[in-house]
Design a binder for these strands. Structure first.
Length: 444
RNA sequence: GGACCCUUAGCCAAGUGGUAAGGCACGGGACUGCAACUCCCUCAUCGCCGGUUCAAAUCCGACAGGGUCCUCCA
């Protein structure tokens, strides 16, 4: 399979460091608010990446952090007059609820900055000892000039960045590009370190967590395009300083989500929270409808289109399922042998193998729906119908699209028989009554 | 000031040198007791201009429009 590596800006054949195993880390949220649908994009996408690797037979160790120490958290906590940890734990729970509602796998490791304070301090201290960092009046900065590859990930020329800077230079730094490892603070939660009473910078946590949990370079590091610079660049700089590798073999960055014509961001205030979107599966479907590296535009009209497509998927799947269930011929242990269905599974895998092209994978899914609908009214094709169910399940599992169906109860079966009988009797008033009941349950 | 990205039918979206996948909407049929669902058919020469090539949506250049980033902002 091929993955687009942001570090080299090219499509590369994926080769895991350890056979049959994928170690991946995705930058998680700073927990001071609910997440919006733009924040949900990497969450859903990298969950899908994980699912596909598992489908391919890999064991995936998936890690995603929570940044629970940060200026924004401190500020919000002060506004709300509650302790920082109370605020962050509230939004961690809210995040997990959203993640679960989006049908993401939730049993992954979720380290928090507050759990890693000692190793982070130790790590910063080590950088100072080795000359990669320096202290100025209680603050600690990373010495970027020591890293010769700095700027490779973000594809930036260091000299140009300095020349083009329009931001006021912090004259405490040796070099304007140096970034904060530790910040001496007056307000809010503070931690005791040899440098000062303060809090860590944002860029160190991921490196320390990855080192602690994986103990070596990992296969994949993911996150939003917006994190590429400076966050990921700085992670790499630190890893080069201490571990002499680039954190990950493959860096993956998803495109941002725009709301109408600008990006959706908390600071612009044009956000739609995940928790406020009722149609969670259509949301997931929408987020996967475009290749992950392309920008995605959200408007109500576009979203309603995906709500509709989702309903088509759901209704076709249910129709096939209930057809088999009513005939008592449901059999999900069947082998797929139908050439058309097999071809679509192959298309699906080829799409996913090609840098997780979920847009094309969805096309394969839709083709299976077509096969289902075309054959739904035919008889004596239970075998094919069962193969379709298996194929749909395979695809929707990889994409994380959950369709709720359950076996039809005895009572509903009776209603179904009565409906058929009433139609045979041409008693349409009665038939319509039964039909309404069955439709409300989604059986028809 | 600098770097990078995007522009495919009414809408969403694949496609990276060989004469435009798929979905939604529209229109025309079919099925149905009526309806819903579903099915069949129809629906674009790829922002604009110029260049390279036997051949370009796909490569190069200019222009227009949109977007992101440029030192503690996720």
């Amino acid at each position: 399979m091929k993955i687009y590596n942001s570090y080299t800006d090219s499509l590369e054949e994926f080769q895991s460091i350890h056979p049959e195993k994928v170690n991946m880390y995705v930058c998680g949220p700073t927990v001071y608010n609910y997440i919006h649908i733009g924040n949900a994009r990497p969450v859903v996408f990298f969950d899908t990446v994980r699912r596909y690797f598992e489908y391919k037979g890999y064991t995936v160790q998936f890690v995603s952090n929570f940044t629970d120490v940060d200026d924004k958290i401190i500020q919000k906590a002060m506004e709300d007059k509650i302790p920082e940890l109370e605020l962050s734990s509230f939004f961690i729970r809210a995040f997990m609820q959203d993640v679960e509602d989006l049908n993401c796998i939730t049993d992954y490791k979720k380290p928090k900055v507050t759990d890693y304070m000692a190793p982070i301090i130790e790590y910063i201290d080590h950088l100072i000892q080795t000359g990669f960092a320096y202290q100025v009046d209680g603050d600690v900065y990373f010495r970027v000039s020591k890293i010769k590859d700095y700027g490779v990930l973000a594809n930036r020329d260091v000299d140009e960045m300095i020349a083009g800077s329009r931001i006021e230079v912090n004259d405490q730094k040796e070099n304007p590009l140096d970034f904060t490892l530790w910040k001496k603070t007056e307000d809010g939660i503070k931690f005791d370190a040899p440098f000062s009473l303060g809090r860590p910078g944002w860029h160190t946590e991921c490196v320390v967590m990855i080192d602690d949990i994986f103990g070596e370079e990992i296969d994949i590091h993911g996150g939003g395009m917006g994190l590429k610079f400076p966050h990921h660049e700085n992670e790499i700089a630190q890893a080069e300083a201490t571990h002499h590798h680039h954190v990950a073999r493959y860096w993956m960055h998803n495109g941002l989500l725009n709301f109408k014509d600008t990006k959706m961001s908390k600071s612009l205030g044009n956000v739609i929270f995940v928790k406020d979107v009722n149609e969670k599966m259509p949301l997931r479907y929408y987020l996967l409808s475009t290749h992950y590296r392309s920008p995605l535009v959200f408007t109500d009209d576009v979203f309603s289109m995906y709500v509709k497509e989702w309903e088509k998927l759901e209704s076709a799947y249910r129709s096939v399922f209930y057809k088999l269930d009513l005939a008592d011929t449901l059999n999900e242990d069947i082998q797929i042998t139908d050439s058309a269905v097999l071809a679509e599974i192959q298309n699906f895998e080829e799409a996913m193998d090609n840098d997780f092209n979920t847009a094309n994978a969805i096309t394969a899914l839709q083709s299976v729906l077509k096969i289902a609908n075309v054959n739904l009214r035919k008889t004596n094709n239970d075998d094919l119908m069962n193969q379709i169910i298996v194929a749909l399940e395979l695809m929707t599992n990889v994409l994380g699209l959950r369709i709720d169906v359950s076996r039809i109860s005895q009572e509903d079966r009776a209603v179904y028989q009565k409906w058929l009988q009433a139609r045979t009797d041409k008693d349409y008033d009665l038939a319509d009554q039964y039909r309404k009941e069955l439709m409300e349950k989604g059986i028809l």
